[in-house]
Amino acid sequence: MIPLSVLDLSFVSADSTPAQALHDTLALARHVDALGYHRYWLAEHHALPNVASPAPEIMIGQIAAATRTLRVGSGGIMLPNHAPLMVAERFRVLEALFPGRIDLGLGRAPGTDGLTARALRRREAPGEAGGDDFLDRLQELLFWDGGFPEGHPFGAIPVSPAGVRLPPLFLLGSSDYSAALAAQIGCGFGFAQHFSGMPAEGPMRDYRARFWPTHLGERPHAILAVAAICAATDAEAERLAMSARLSTLRRERGEYRPLPSLAEAEAYPYAESERLRIERGRDRLHVGAPETLRARLAELAERVQADELMIVSAIPDQAARRESYALLARAWGLGVAAAA
């Protein structure tokens, strides 16, 4: 079976706080490290009351220090929000402290609303206010790692810490744009099926077919990020999923409220139109007992030719959330969980 990993948005629940959500992230990372999960990635979001993850590079260092075998990385750093030199320096520091355990995943979106994006984006495309300069920033980031062309003024600037290279690079996306770009420059690719409006097969297969080996990577590595919830029975998993489904309904209306409790989700007066929207979105949330979920995810991974699955589980009850990852790990045959 291919590796399983974790994507954590540090969800804020209705009965908790953002500070507690960050501590829950640390606890979950220790938990899945013992279970045999491969990576643990942190996302970057700003000014959203339902997630507590504006600075993944800080959490990466905390989690890497608190775990033993996990690769820890960004899922991702939203590059338009940052100066490429700062990204290069911060991830070199992480790589120096935890050699061979850090990943640098990059995203193109701002990870927030338009007004906050304006506050974050101090540098804009020349001649186009608010323009997309992602490609320019990506090229500059690669130059900071591999060296600038002769005569470039930035070539005289040393990058600290010296003698340390950037960790492995992944481009992240929910469409075919990042897939094509990742294939072109020869780096890893992560597709966000958990919120994408398009099927994963096209971008995932296209990335693999068009991959061109470079110094960034000799072969393609495609990660599929999926929303999944596991419980002892199919019925219990469906019950736990009610919080995530209600949260999705609200998010589609522009309501970024904390993750509702299960009691709130069960008592919510769903309109018929809302029930229909939930049914239409079932393919984006994979739910079931261990064997049910294992079979469904294995079939999906084979169909889209994924090298790795990255699981995001929006469950407000932290004990149930940890148990969801544990049950899936055992069904998948991971590390210590398989022996147990």
Rank of each mutant, 00 (worst) to 15 (best):
S16E: 09
E95N: 12
R296F: 04
S10D: 09
Y177D: 13
G163P: 04
A162P: 07
I223L: 12
A337R: 00
P167T: 09
G107C: 10
L85Q: 10
Q318A: 13
L115W: 10
F148A: 06
L4P: 03
F98C: 11
V304R: 00
A182K: 02
C187I: 07
G131H: 05
S261T: 15
G147A: 11
L141T: 06
R250L: 10
S16F: 03
A162V: 05
G114A: 06
D145Y: 02
R322S: 10
E255V: 15
Y207P: 03
A235W: 01
I60K: 02
S313N: 10
E264I: 10
N81R: 12
R253V: 08
E308K: 08
A301M: 05
E255G: 03
T233R: 11
S175Q: 08
S273M: 06
L276Q: 12
Y177W: 14
V93C: 07
R330C: 00
E238G: 01
L48H: 03
L166G: 06
H286L: 14
L328D: 04
L172A: 10
R239N: 11
I157S: 12
A156N: 05
S174R: 13
W332H: 06
E266A: 10
N81M: 11
L172D: 00
S243D: 01
F148W: 01
D307N: 13
T67R: 02
R330H: 01
V87N: 06
D176Y: 03
S174Y: 01
R71F: 00
D136R: 14
P54K: 07
